[in-house]
Design a protein around this nucleic acid. Structure first.
Lengths: 262, 262
DNA sequence: TCATGATATTGAAAGATTATGGAAGAATTC
DNA sequence: GAATTCTTCCATAATCTTTCAATATCATGA
């Protein structure tokens, strides 16, 4: 791991907990105490944290608008690997529909510059493609959710009913035996419309989402064509998905980085 | 492989991964470390990437969306004054429809934070309001113009036919006796739809646009309710506009400001 | 078309800089 | 006073900068 990456992860940890002890950081970042000390020294000089005997306090200001690029989402390395795998499913010249969400955003980033017809209801995704001369972009209008920048609601549903795409790439908040779930009720109908608009439906989701439920049921497991997930997914779930006819794609990730999460 | 090709591939790699280590790049591009270093130096100078110990980070201005703030529009001081005047026409609680264009963008900036229902087909404008908790935002979907980030085309027209707003704020490329003109043919029908959607139509335009023609005719002079323009407008034009029943609003600007334009 | 010198690009190596882990002793907490 | 934590120092390895020679590319005029 690079020094910069480590430092940003360190800061992330300290920010999330407001405090961290040295041994704790040593364990989570897997480097020596000396290195942690030096990193903390830097952060201290920048006034972001304050050293105290036995650990470090976070004193910096919260970052403002949570833009996917700046915030270090949980399971970021998983999403990254999944996105890479999912992007390989897209061919040049394809017409694709991209949902909102941080994982699909990662997919979108990898697709910028490719010759594609892109349809999306996500403002951040649209911003990525807006000035890309290689692709053309159709934005699905509708009510914009302030938190996520995603369009949903009746306008979106109606417009989606009129488009047809080769591949729909969706993310989801939770997966359990009953199927895929989302935590935004307004989005559910919109996501269903997106699935109807796509010839192939690709769901990108990291392993931590499995076994959970969420607010609203979107669809059953077997109704999607591909599921792209990281290699930390249990064998049990791998079996369940393939049993219902889903084409399962596993993105290899190194080490059970789960222990990183406190 | 040509140097240029190598550099573009390098940038591609770095952009896709957000980060790349030197040995990794050496292997993938098949040139020496020295060469990679020199290439990275160039990218670094251009501000596209950031060198860190052990590799390189991609920082490329992601929102390459035509961000009006960065480019220095001509007649900026005029647009500024006009925007101020036009923003005063908007009341709290209004439902407004905002067109694309640099003048309307200035209006939008002044309206951020107000309690409004905002409808727009402009990506830059939508970005302004997306995270504003005081307003709610409806985006008019459609084909996004790569240069301006504005949605137009049949999807946009159809969606516009279903919305009704209190005030429509439009900009225009040219004004002559025959009426208002625009330089983008696809936008014309969309702008007409926007006018139909609004109870009141407000046109924001600076004095330099008067007397010119442009590609496509949008509507005649008398069909709009308000025209907001800077005080450099000739008396002749002031008369023409008021004669057809337009409510003319003059934004005061300093005369000698013209000389400012180098 | 060909030769020729100027300029730019490339790869390799040497030396400087930085990152890291470990250890010894001082300072602190309890 | 004992345990923990901190500071300081050093050795090692990785990475960076500088430099130089070899090669490639280009523009120019014969």
């Amino acid at each position: 791991m690079l020094a910069e990456e480590r430092r940003s992860r360190l800061l992330e940890i300290v920010r999330n907990h407001q405090f961290a002890s040295l041994p704790q950081l040593v364990e989570q970042l897997g480097v020596s105490e000396s290195t942690i000390r030096r990193d903390l020294e830097q952060l201290d000089e920048q006034g972001i944290t304050r050293r105290i005997h036995g650990g470090v306090l976070f004193v910096g200001a919260e970052p403002k608008v949570p833009h996917f690029e700046t915030r270090e989402p949980s399971q970021w390395h998983l999403k990254k690997a999944i996105a890479q795998n999912a992007a390989a499913l897209v061919d040049d010249g394809d017409t694709i529909l991209l949902d909102g969400g941080s994982t699909t955003y990662e997919v979108a980033r990898l697709l910028v510059g490719r010759a594609l017809h892109v349809v999306t209801n996500s403002l951040p995704v649209a911003n990525l493609f807006a000035s890309d001369p290689n692709s053309d972009l159709v934005f699905i209008g509708g009510n914009i959710c302030p938190r996520t920048g995603v369009a949903r609601g009746p306008y979106a549903d109606q417009m989606l009913s009129q488009v047809r795409v080769r591949k729909t790439i969706l993310s989801t908040a939770a997966v359990c035996e009953e199927g895929f779930f989302n935590n935004n009720l307004l989005l559910i109908e919109t996501e269903r419309a997106m699935m109807r608009a796509g010839k192939e439906v690709i769901v990108v989701v990291d392993s931590s989402k499995f076994g959970n439920q969420s607010l609203g049921h979107v669809c059953s497991l077997g109704t999607v064509d591909h599921v792209v997930v990281d290699s930390l997914l249990s064998d049990e779930w791998r079996f369940k998905l393939t049993a219902v006819g889903v084409n399962l794609r596993i993105a290899e990730v190194d080490e059970p980085a789960l222990a990183m999460q406190i």
